[in-house]
């Protein structure tokens, strides 16, 4: 006796007919895409590629290295800040809170201007303590601002992730006689990192986007090279190239995160 006759199975939903709103919306995008292809076919210029191709690649490298270095430096700074935010000590808690609030409450571009132009006012002082080589270079100034800025955001990510680990994990570690540092690094932090993976990836994406600002203080990152190419040619496709490169970078990172999260949380799936 066959249990699943055709009458018991749920009727297949009627095939969805595309509706008028969707047709119009996708029609607009298709029109955009066609216009874009026509524009690009007409404007596309191999001499431009030959002239600026390498500078775009070097700009991409500057962007990637700037983001990578400042992300790692920010991660190092964020650890004591996050611990300060979680501590019961009012001085540590207050100063960590002020640090986070300052960097999250003001525009990155103003912070970069303060470091690059503002600190230049104390040229003699920095010369005297032998730090002028650092504040003279736009690259280092951009790096410093980005690192401190991301440290404030990462501290909040880290704090949220550590606080999401149940208290019982600490207590379990303590009842096994493990010292506090071992519990933190071997028990709590690995679990917190799984929670923090997605926010960290979002933070990297936000940094890639924010790092375009350093072009304003004459760092030749991807956006800086683009501005230069545009100012030499007045050809709008230079900006379109940059847009495509940034989109490719961000999308690659987003898909890599999705993949990594699927891999790392296999043991949590039921």
């Amino acid at each position: 006796m066959s249990g699943n006759g055709p009458s018991l199975a749920a009727p297949a939903p009627p095939p969805q007919k595309p509706k008028i709103a969707g047709m119009i919306a996708i029609g607009v995008w298709i029109a955009f895409a066609i216009a874009f292809v026509i524009y690009f076919a007409k404007a596309f210029d191999t001499t431009l590629i030959a002239r600026f191709g390498w500078s775009y690649l070097s700009g991409l490298w500057v962007t990637v290295s700037l983001v990578a270095v400042s992300f790692v430096l920010g991660a190092l700074v964020s650890l004591p800040v996050a611990l300060g935010r979680m501590s019961a000590n009012p001085i540590a808690g207050g100063s960590a809170f002020a640090f986070v609030y300052f960097f999250r409450g003001t525009p990155l571009i103003a912070q970069i201007f303060l470091v690059y132009y503002g600190f230049g006012q104390f040229h003699d002082f920095f010369e005297a303590i032998g730090m002028w080589w650092f504040f003279r270079e736009a690259w280092y100034c951009g790096l410093l601002s980005l690192a401190l800025n991301t440290a404030a955001y990462q501290a909040e990510i880290l704090r949220g992730a550590i606080e999401s680990v149940p208290k019982g994990q600490w207590e379990g570690g303590r009842s096994l006689g493990l010292p506090g540092s071992v519990i933190f690094f071997k028990v709590v932090l690995p679990q917190a990192m799984i929670v923090a993976l997605r926010p960290y990836a979002n933070e990297i994406i936000l940094m890639i986007k924010a790092s375009a600002i350093v072009a304003i203080i004459t760092v030749y990152d991807l956006f800086g090279e683009t501005r230069q190419a545009y100012s030499r040619t007045y050809d709008f496709q230079t900006y379109v190239w940059a847009a495509l490169l940034y989109l490719a970078l961000v999308e690659a990172l987003r898909h890599a995160t999705n993949w990594a999260e699927r891999r790392l949380t296999v043991h949590l799936k039921r």
Binding site: K209, A210, I213, F223, Y239, A242, Y246, V250
Partner: peptide, 16 residues
């Protein structure tokens, strides 16, 4: 269509 919109404008730097 909505997803295309979000992907583009979330991925591009604000300055760009």
């Amino acid at each position: 269509s909505a997803d295309i919109f979000t992907t583009i404008f979330r991925g591009l730097p604000e300055l760009l």
